[in-house]
Amino acid sequence: MALLEIRNIYKNFGGIKAINDFSLVANKGEIHGIIGPNGAGKTTIFNTVTGIYNADKGEIFLDGKDITNLPQYQITRLGIARTFQNIRLFSGLTVEENILCAFDFMCKYNLIGGLFPTKLRFKEEKRARELCRNYLEIFGMLEYINEKPENLSYGNQRKVEIARALMCEPKILLLDEPAAGLTPTEVSELTDLLKYVSKKFGFAVLLIEHRLDLVMSICEKIHVLNFGETIAVGTAEEVQNDPKVIEAYLGVEE
């Protein structure tokens, strides 16, 4: 059984067909890339999978369980974590607290522990903080643990956001343009990190990205979209030589 199965989803905004019959099957450990020109509906797919939008038609299964149109937080709890195109860290919290937030639904103390210093609270908080340090260490960000996210550089904010998504202990990680605004060295660093964590924790990754070098180097399967339609699916070589893809990106020769 596939880990994530998206079956023929459709999403319209008024007269605009943002997603038109999109399907995808992802298994454990795979990295899928979704590429396409601006406005092709890439982020809309993410928003539909994570429950921000309801699909007009079609079904989404996670581990065989129908998650179509469930509330956003429940989808996350079932195992789909994501990052955002424009970084969305919580500004009132430190880096550590930002990451802890993503674990709080698995933190097992209740409101009594929220108001009184109970044993369970200390135990659970300690467990969460240890996990958080763990992830920060993988990303080499341990020194910024008590920093406010808005004081960090753009690249480091990206890393915190990915660490926060990992803290949800996802089965599938959705990354929305993780390399946007990064320098070439930062991009190659990020590529290695992504390969490493996806192997280490064994989840599937869906990746939206404009930088084709990144997509081509780490994705096993690439979906090319244009105006909501899937125009090509396949490995890097396959889609690179697809005439439809060349047409969408470069236009047709007259």
Partner: peptide, 29 residues
């Protein structure tokens, strides 16, 4: 003060700061 330092306080601040992102982190806002 205890409430603020707990997971509930954190989640409150997260919801105040960005409700959409908070939901995406599994927080029932």
């Amino acid at each position: 003060a205890m409430f603020k330092r707990s997971k509930y306080g954190r989640q409150c601040i997260a919801v105040k700061s960005d409700e959409l992102a908070a939901e995406a982190m599994g927080i029932d806002s």
